[in-house]
Computed example of a mutant assay.
Amino acid sequence: MHANVLKYFVEVARCGSIRKAAQNLYVASSAVNRQVLKLESEMGAELFDRLPNGIRLNAAGERVLQHIRSTLNDFHLMRSELDALKGERKGHVSVAAMDSLFVDFLPATVEEFSESYPAVTYSIAAVPPHDVPARLVSGEYDLGISYVTKLPAGLDVVTEVSLPPGVVMASSHPLAKKERISFEECRNHAFLRLEGRSPIQGVVANDFHEYWESLKPSVTCNSTTLLKRLIASGRGISFFSKLAFLDELARGEVVWRPLDDVNVNALTVGVIAPNQRALAHVTLQFVDRMVRRLKHVELSLRGV
């Protein structure tokens, strides 16, 4: 199959819209539609269900997408191996990670890695923690960083560190004087909530969902950066790992306190990778940099 057909098909499947896919690919919608129709003709079957508000992969399309991702992975692997034979340092790294890692950890890792591998390109997506494993299993991304819970078959934890979620607040907050904080104590203070399902939900008692929904946050948003600023200014408290507040903790602007829950405190943050497909040389090198940085961060945050 021609490379453009594969690229267009994957983007349409991801967007659920030919128009949005065309915008992302910087080509005309007619060109994308033509390639999709050409692929369906070659396959002898429709690959999408056409809906009033877009298009959606059907069973045949899901199977084709699985094959294409496997084909593209093998292609990138082969290119990486050829580059390695020529002594070149090229390739592509794709990572799905929880949003808090985009504040300091991932930017620093990419900056450091780019000094040694300046020709490498990246696809890095902020994904809710519980969705990270699925993005790797599907082949959409090669690496993941998230809280480690029960993983689906086909994935391994490369390394994990003890950086569980806890309560983050301004250093002047009344709760900052406590060594541990209960969920009920949090209810009595202004709460700032990151939109979506909390990573804590899967590891504590079943009634946590009711507790989470019963909270009346003063702010709900999908931006860790915004919540960080509001927390540091004393506008409220929230649940975060120390990973999102490396600089603020070092400067003493905020404090982090563990929750009074043994299951939450046992949560780890891990680098996750597939075990059923080979990863390119440059991706393995990037894994090594992430592992080293994650362990360094864990060590530097002890006692903070």
Results as ranks from 00 to 15, higher is better:
Pro164Phe: 00
Tyr211Val: 07
Leu226His: 08
Arg187Ser: 12
Pro165Arg: 02
Ala153Tyr: 05
His173Cys: 00
Leu226Val: 10
Glu160Val: 08
Glu184Tyr: 15
His209Glu: 15
Ser223Pro: 15
Ser172Glu: 04
Thr225Cys: 08
His189Gly: 06
Val219Met: 07
Leu155Ile: 03
Glu195Thr: 11
Trp212Arg: 01
Leu243Ile: 13
Arg180Glu: 14
Trp212His: 06
Phe191Asp: 10
Gly202Asn: 14
Thr220Phe: 10
Asp207Asn: 15
His209Val: 15
Lys177Gly: 04
Gly234Leu: 00
Ser171Lys: 01
Ala170Pro: 05
Leu175Gly: 06
Ile231Met: 09
Ala205Glu: 13
Val168Trp: 00
Glu213Ile: 12
Thr159Val: 04
Val157Pro: 09
Arg193Asn: 09
Ser241Pro: 07
Gly236Ser: 01
Pro152Cys: 00
Gly196Ser: 06
Val203Ile: 14
Ser171Glu: 02
Tyr211Thr: 14
Phe239Met: 03
Lys150Met: 11
Ser162His: 05
Val157Tyr: 02
Glu184Arg: 08
Ala205Arg: 10
Leu194His: 13
Ile200Lys: 09
Arg180Pro: 06
Arg187Glu: 14
Val157Cys: 05
Ile181Val: 14
Glu179Lys: 13
Ala176Arg: 01
Leu151Trp: 03
Ala205Met: 14
Leu163Trp: 03
Lys178Asn: 07
Val161Asp: 03
Asp207Pro: 08
Gly154Ala: 02
Ala244Val: 02
Leu155His: 12
Ser218Phe: 04
Lys177Val: 11
Ser241Leu: 00
